[in-house]
Design a protein around this nucleic acid. Structure first.
Length: 96
DNA sequence: ACGCTGATTGTTCAT
DNA sequence: ATGAACAATCAGCGT
């Protein structure tokens, strides 16, 4: 492990951040995004009727509930996605 | 050299 | 269309 920095570095509130770069090389998704993509239907299946208030939180709990290797596939996608972002970021630097 | 912050990503649900 | 919890991210920048 690199360094345990702080819980969640920055980010105080959250309101549709805006971009500041010219080509804004968005970034890659996050392991949670991939995990949610698969779990969303699964979790909602096991928790029918639960509103975002529950599903949303439950989803987060389950996410970490998975074994490190279980989230591995999601992390793998996150990493692969990051590469995708790497490409746009590259074009962004060349664009400038 | 070093650390930080900000921006972003996608889900669900409601309004 | 958007926001809000939920989590990860991680790249660029400044001092």
């Amino acid at each position: 492990m690199p360094k345990a920095a702080k819980s969640r570095s920055g980010k105080a509130e959250k309101k549709t951040r805006q971009k500041k770069d010219p080509n804004a090389p968005k970034r890659g998704l996050s392991a949670y995004m991939f995990f949610a993509n698969e779990q969303r239907d699964n979790v909602r299946e096991e928790n029918p009727g639960v509103s975002f208030g529950q599903v949303g939180k439950i989803l987060g709990e389950r996410w970490k509930a998975l074994s490190d290797k279980q989230r591995a596939p999601y992390e793998a996608k996150a990493a692969a996605d990051k590469k995708r972002y790497e490409d746009e970021k590259q074009a962004y630097n060349v664009s400038v």
